[in-house]
């Protein structure tokens, strides 16, 4: 029997991190991620971890880099506005190959924007976490249970691939209370050969992202790692896709809404399925490969101007079969409107 709690998504993220073995949490508060910091401030001491509220996001992420370089299990939480500020350091961490977990709880709009939920950070997090062309794994949980599972797992992924890992979800998913079950035990931590300690009886080590003497070899090693991540980290859920004529694509909270839409559509005889990317970087192109050259239509639903839809088009092969639907920013897409769009697409089929 696991340990059940009825808890907010953000609190679930914090509790899962503590249970996974997080040793340092460095934070600057920003809505809608603040409950993560609040919870950590109250609970991280339980396991002897260090909580620091920094003077800015830039300070928080650099403290995290420092902690990571010593081999400590570290994490921060923020929203898109803070993620922008952290991007420089995330690039340095990717270059220096240190593991860390970053939870980004998305809020609406460019600039200061507003507090409502959105999925507008997709491109930023999957493709532009700073300069230099690194690739980092990004989990996209759709409910509180997945937040627990993926935050827990992300510490292991970060250490296995020596990389920062992002867990990305929107403000609603962070605010919804649901019942969750926590996994038993920590993420296993293996001894490493790179982190900084007091070098007992051996030569000191260097953690660096600078390769002023020439970066060729380092780049090849990074590229090999990205190939490995692409091979091993493509994760997705398929629902009712076997005979589907139209397949919905949505990540995070939109994914769970689309699952209900599939049930409703099936009730009225529409052959609809769902592909829900669980990791959005590396993008699960494998899920779409088999539909190349078929007549199956794809309808990507996003709470943004449209970002993941381009990855879908690339994976399926852009043609007349890829479509996109968005609702007004700052609210969840209404199931009735997605259904209308599906009926319309079905009509174009016949």
């Amino acid at each position: 029997m696991g340990d059940f709690k009825f808890i907010k998504g953000n609190e679930a993220a914090a509790e899962a991190a503590i249970r996974a073995g997080c040793e340092g949490f460095f934070f600057y508060p920003v809505t809608p991620s603040s409950e993560i910091g609040e919870y950590m401030a109250n609970h991280l001491h339980r396991t002897g971890g260090v909580f620091a509220q920094a003077e800015s996001e830039i300070a928080a992420v650099n403290m995290m880099f420092g902690g990571a370089a010593t081999g400590a299990r570290v994490m921060t939480g923020t929203s898109g506005v803070g993620y922008s500020l952290m991007s420089e350091c995330i690039s340095y961490m990717a270059g220096a190959e240190v593991p860390a977990v970053i939870v980004d709880v998305m809020r609406a709009g460019p600039g200061l924007g507003s507090l409502e939920p959105t999925q507008g950070d997709y491109n930023q997090v999957t493709k532009a976490s700073g300069h230099g062309g690194h690739i980092i794994p990004v989990y996209a949980p759709s409910n509180a249970q997945e937040i627990v599972n993926f935050v827990h797992e992300s510490f292991g992924t970060a250490e296995r691939f020596r990389t920062p890992v992002v867990v990305l979800y929107d403000g609603y998913t962070g605010q919804v209370m649901e019942s969750v079950e926590f996994p038993e035990g920590r993420q296993e931590k293996k001894p490493n050969t790179w982190s900084l300690d007091d070098a007992p009886g051996r030569k000191g080590r260097v953690v660096r992202s600078g390769y002023a003497g020439g970066i060729g070899q380092h780049s090849f090693e990074l590229y090999a790692k990205y190939d490995d991540m692409k091979e091993k980290l493509q994760r997705f859920e398929e629902y009712q896709t076997e005979d589907a004529e139209i397949i919905l694509v949505g990540f995070g909270i939109v994914g769970r809404i689309c699952k209900s839409v599939v049930d409703k559509a099936r009730d009225e005889g529409l052959k609809v399925g769902l592909i829900r990317p669980i990791m959005i970087s590396p993008f699960p192109a494998k899920a779409f490969a088999k539909y190349k050259g078929t007549k199956v239509k794809f309808l990507t639903i996003e709470m943004s101007y449209g970002q993941m839809c381009h990855d879908v088009a690339l994976a399926v092969g852009e043609n007349d079969n890829t479509h996109f639907f968005r609702d007004k920013c700052g609210s969840l897409p209404a199931m009735s409107e997605i259904l209308n769009r599906l009926r319309q697409l079905k009509g174009e089929n016949s």
């Binding site: 809608p32 507003s114 409502e116 939920p117 403000g171 609603y172 605010q175 919804v176 209370m177 019942s179």
Partner: peptide
């Protein structure tokens, strides 16, 4: 049963 609770969220 399953349940979700979501507070009105905004400024």
């Amino acid at each position: 049963n399953k349940a979700t609770w979501l507070p009105a969220y905004g400024p």
